[in-house]
C-alpha cells in the first residue's frame, strides 16, 4: 500500500485551524443539535430553576426517554434510506403480548424474552417484505400493519392488561430496568448500547454504508451493485427488533402490560428523528442527532409545566420544532443542488 501524498508542512496553527473548521463543517448538524439542547436546558434552568435545577428531573428523563429513544435510533436508519415505519408501536405491543403469554404459560423468562425479540424481528421483516417485494410505499404498508398487529394484540388478549408484578425483584427485571446507584435506570444504559450499535452499523459497517447510498440515490446504488432490496428488508427487521426490546422495557418499568403500549411513541419518536437532523429527502442523518433530539423532545413538556404555561402549549412547540427542522432541510438542500 502506498502512503498518501505528503504535503509540505505549513504553520501548525493554520493546519489546526483548518482541521477544526473542517470538523465543524462536517459535523455542523450534530454540533447544532447539541447546542440547541444545552441552550434549551439553560433557558429552562433560568425560567424554572426549582425544576431544572434538581437532579430528579434528569433521572426522570433517563427513565422515560429510552422507551421511544431506543426505537428512534434504528428509525433514523430507515428515514435515511427514505423509508418510514408507522407500525413500530403496534410491533412493540404485539411482541410484548408474545412475551406475556409465553411467560404465563411456561414461566420461562429467557424463552419468553427470546421469543419477544424474534417476534419483533419477524414483524419488522414482514414490513420490509411488503415494501420491497410487493412494492407498497412504506408509509402505506406500515399503516396497514400497524392496524393489523394492534388488532392482533387485542384479539389475543381480549383487550385485557397483564400485571408483570411477578417479575419484580428478579435478576431479569433488574437487568432490564433496575437502578444503578439507586439513580441511573438500566434502560438508559440500554439506550446507550442501542446508540453505539446503530452508530457502528451506520458509520462503520457495509450495511450502513449501503443505507446512506440507497437514501441518497437509489438508482446509483443499484447501478453499483448495492443489494438494495436485502438491505431495506433488514433495516425494517432491525427496527422491529429494537421496538420489541423497547416495548419490553416500558412494560417492565410500569410492571404492567397494557394493550395500548407504544401508542404515545409514534409521533414523538418520528419528531426526534427529524429534529435530530435526519432529512426526509434521504441520505443524511446521524444517530447522535436523534439521541440528543430525544432529550430535547422529552424536556419540553416538563418545562412547559414548570414554567407555568398551559399544557396545551407542548403540542404547539412540538409542531413548531418539526416544521422548522424539516423546512431547514428543504432550504439547505435547495441551496446545495
Amino acid at each position: 500500500m502506498q502512503a498518501s501524498t505528503h504535503t509540505s508542512p505549513p504553520a501548525p496553527t493554520r493546519e489546526t485551524r483548518r482541521n477544526v473548521r473542517r470538523f465543524a463543517r462536517r459535523n455542523r448538524l450534530q454540533i447544532g443539535i447539541i447546542g440547541v439542547l444545552v441552550l434549551l436546558w439553560l433557558f429552562f434552568l433560568a425560567l424554572a430553576p426549582e425544576t431544572f435545577g434538581q437532579r430528579s428531573i434528569y433521572g426522570a428523563f433517563m427513565q422515560s426517554v429510552p422507551f421511544f429513544g431506543i426505537v428512534a435510533m434504528p428509525l433514523t436508519m430507515l428515514v435515511i434510506a427514505r423509508d418510514m415505519d408507522l407500525s413500530f408501536p403496534a410491533v412493540m405491543a404485539f411482541s410484548v403480548t408474545v412475551f406475556v403469554l409465553l411467560y404465563q404459560s411456561t414461566q420461562n423468562v429467557v424463552l419468553a424474552f427470546v421469543a419477544c425479540m424474534a417476534t419483533g424481528f419477524v414483524l419488522g421483516l414482514l414490513n420490509g417484505l411488503l415494501v420491497v417485494y410487493i412494492g407498497i410505499p412504506s408509509l402505506i404498508a406500515t399503516i396497514g400493519t400497524q392496524f393489523f398487529w394492534r388488532g392482533m394484540v387485542n384479539v389475543a388478549t381480549n383487550g385485557r392488561a397483564f400485571p408483570l408484578t411477578e417479575l419484580r425483584g428478579t435478576p431479569f427485571r433488574e437487568l432490564m430496568v433496575g437502578r444503578v446507584f439507586d439513580f441511573i435506570p438500566m434502560q438508559m444504559f440500554w439506550m446507550l448500547v442501542a446508540a453505539v450499535i446503530i452508530w457502528f452499523l451506520l458509520n462503520r459497517h457495509q450495511f450502513g454504508a449501503h443505507i446512506y447510498l440507497i437514501g441518497d440515490n437509489e438508482n446509483s446504488a443499484r447501478l453499483m451493485g448495492v443489494r438494495v432490496r436485502r438491505t431495506r428488508c433488514l433495516m425494517f427487521a432491525v427496527v422491529g427488533l429494537f421496538a420489541a426490546f423497547a416495548g419490553l422495557l416500558t412494560s417492565l418499568e410500569i410492571n404492567n402490560f397494557f394493550t395500548n403500549l407504544g401508542e404515545g411513541y409514534l409521533l414523538i419518536g418520528l419528531a426526534a428523528v427529524f429534529l435530530g437532523g435526519t432529512s426526509v429527502f434521504g441520505g443524511v442523518g446521524t444517530v447522535l442527532g436523534t439521541f440528543v433530539a430525544c432529550f430535547i423532545i422529552a424536556s419540553i413538556q416538563p418545562a412547559v409545566v414548570a414554567i407555568g404555561w398551559s399544557g396545551f402549549t407542548t403540542q404547539v412547540i412540538y409542531g413548531f420544532i418539526i416544521i422548522v427542522s424539516v423546512s431547514m432541510h428543504a432550504i439547505l438542500r435547495r441551496r446545495m443542488i
Binding site: F200, Q206, Y212, D216, S220, L223, M224, G225, V226, G283
Partner: peptide, 28 residues
C-alpha cells in the same frame, strides 16, 4: 452515462460504492 454517484456522500463512499473494503463481519 448518469454517473451513478451519491451527491451528499463523501468522496470515499462514492469511490467504493457497492464494494467497500471490509474486514470481519462486514465492518468497513
Amino acid at each position: 452515462q448518469e454517473r451513478a454517484l451519491a451527491d451528499q456522500q463523501t468522496l470515499w463512499r462514492n469511490i467504493f460504492m457497492g464494494r467497500e473494503i471490509t474486514g470481519r463481519f462486514g465492518f468497513l
